[in-house]
Write a protein that binds this DNA or RNA. Structure first.
Lengths: 337, 337
DNA sequence: ATGAAAGCGCTAACAA
DNA sequence: TTGTTAGCGCTTTCAT
């Protein structure tokens, strides 16, 4: 049976085309010095044999892979998906392939992932956030691989940074509500600190409230990521426990939408009786009625900038660690007035 | 400088631990025959040197990778993310790593991805849908790698299948509306046939309408994937052109939510004046007010079954192509009565 | 523009 | 339980 034949190698193609294996190797490189007719003959032979280049062998010999390792907290999040999408599109022309892993908002799972990824000798490692286990930090240092931290401004960067201050962004939101004369303001977010960006947003909320001499109300919505349902439940307990609340800032648009829905179920007017704001500029917040005031952290821009930084590093144009800051935009919508 | 040292290899660890490289290799395998004290000594030496196993070399020598190639239409879709998430969790214990690519609903992009992935000699290829270019089909056949098609019931399967009939699921939805006495029913979906699952749903709609002797109204909402915004716009033109429509079935919950929002903006009562249904059981449809009637295709179940099939194949328990069918559930909610 | 020799780092196969 | 030998498929390097 034909299927019992071993997978053809470069050697087989070389013999079929009447050249040396080295010439076949050249034929498969776009920029190699080779006669076009020879290449055509080789490609025809390769096609006939069903030859597929073995990039494992190629990587081993050249001591160079085309992998870029990327970790995100969740595979199921439109914001991170946008960042990865932009990254992927920008790296595709360079022939770089993304090795994607998700940490489930857990630094130990991140450690496990990074350890696994480093065995593949990636060209770079791009992570979400600036919180890592000591072992992760050490592995990345030992690997001497370019590292880019995204979506955050780490206190002690591992290398390059493409991010923004989550705390600062939420402070702008608080200022907006206070400027409207609102004082009884609550924050709906995760009840544990696994999600460091969520934690930063909560801290930003509290810092801003304190600055205004106000007392912030914190509503715990469960373990990150906070879903629409958890947002709705949190809004329910807020309405039960502190019905005089005038505004609610949610850790994300998803929980904000859940909160909005709970208000609608209870006949609480938004805005009017209560204003709602989210974070992340997810599509749902732009489409729903009323639309939800939010902060746009430009997730695709983060991916594009990370790709830019990475290309500079790989081209040797960047010797020192780079910091590229995003400026999140406050988007005022119908849910706050 | 310490950093100028070459990356340590097994050889270096072996010398440091006073054993042969082969013993080091064994120490890094969980199930290898090795003295535990020797292993401890080796691990200590490896740790001190910052040694990281080179899985490229390992794969080349053993002619075996731990990659599973997976393609999905979009990285930014909660349903496919759930499938990939479940797949990933089930494959992790086996030490299999997912190589994820997204096709952007384009069979040619799928072809490009598969070609790239096959160079890595994956253990299996898992694709979304049953529509592929001839070249893709041929590459996969040549590679003699296990293939699983998901989310669909392909007419000509490439190998194993874990899916359901999108057409049939939508027919059940039409039957539901007709049973309620509704006759003027519209379908909002993509205007090109790139998304074969969307196309199947539209066909199911038309077939069911025809079976009931009714004429279906088709509203084109743009190129897949259909967003919430496009759903809203499509509902706008439907309300303009055919205001007597009694029910709308949307290609997904996202467009259904957009359609619902547009109704709310225009003061059209849902349900009452118009009933709305979606597809996919996305969270937004369960939380919004009114909640949206939908079909649950059990995306995580698809991933779990695919992982199950894959494990059976890798264990040699499955010689012949397998078909595992999902039965999507109709979820009746507030948007239809 | 093409070829020959060597070896990337690891592990299969066999030996002790 | 550990060691020795050989070679996976490719590309670097040097030669022609």
């Amino acid at each position: 049976m034909a299927n019992l034949r071993k997978t053809p190698t470069m050697h087989d193609v070389a013999r079929a085309a009447g050249v040396s294996p080295m010439t076949v190797s050249r034929a498969f490189k776009t920029d190699a010095l080779i006669n076009e007719q020879t290449r055509a003959r080789i490609m025809a032979a390769a096609d006939k044999l069903g030859y597929v280049l073995d990039s494992t062998a190629s990587s081993l010999r050249s001591q160079k892979t085309d992998f870029v390792a990327v970790t995100v907290p969740s595979i199921n999040n439109a914001n991170f998906a946008d960042t990865v999408g932009a990254l992927s599109e920008k790296l595709k022309p360079r022939g770089l392939q993304i090795l994607l892993g998700y940490t489930n908002y857990d630094v130990h799972e991140e450690e496990r992932l990074i350890a696994q990824f480093l065995r593949r000798k990636p060209q770079a490692v791009i992570v979400t956030g600036g919180q890592h286990t000591p072992r992760t930090r050490q592995m990345l240092e030992n690997a001497a691989v370019p590292v880019i931290e995204t979506w955050d401004l780490p206190a002690q960067p591992l290398g390059h940074v493409v991010g923004f201050s989550n705390a600062q962004a939420v402070q702008a939101m608080v200022d907006h509500f206070v400027a409207q004369g609102l004082t009884r303001i609550a924050f709906i977010g995760g009840d544990v600190d696994r999600d460091t960006r969520g934690l930063d947003r909560r801290r930003g909320f509290q810092a801003a409230m304190q600055r205004h001499g106000l007392e912030g109300r914190l509503i715990a919505a469960g373990a990150p990521p906070i879903s629409m349902r958890e947002g709705a439940e949190a809004m329910g307990s807020l309405l039960d426990s502190a019905p005089d609340t005038e505004a609610v800032i949610c850790v994300s648009d998803l929980s904000a939408f859940g909160a909005l829905s709970e208000c609608q179920r209870r006949g609480v007017a938004v805005p009017g009786q209560i204003s709602i704001a989210g974070f992340g500029n997810y599509e749902v917040g732009a489409i729903c009625v009323p639309s939800i005031t939010t902060i746009d952290p430009a997730p695709r821009r983060i991916g594009e900038l990370a790709a830019e930084v990475l290309c500079d590093v790989l081209d040797g144009n960047t010797e020192h660690p780079v910091q590229r800051h995003i400026t999140p935009q406050l988007l005022l919508r119908e849910s706050s007035v």
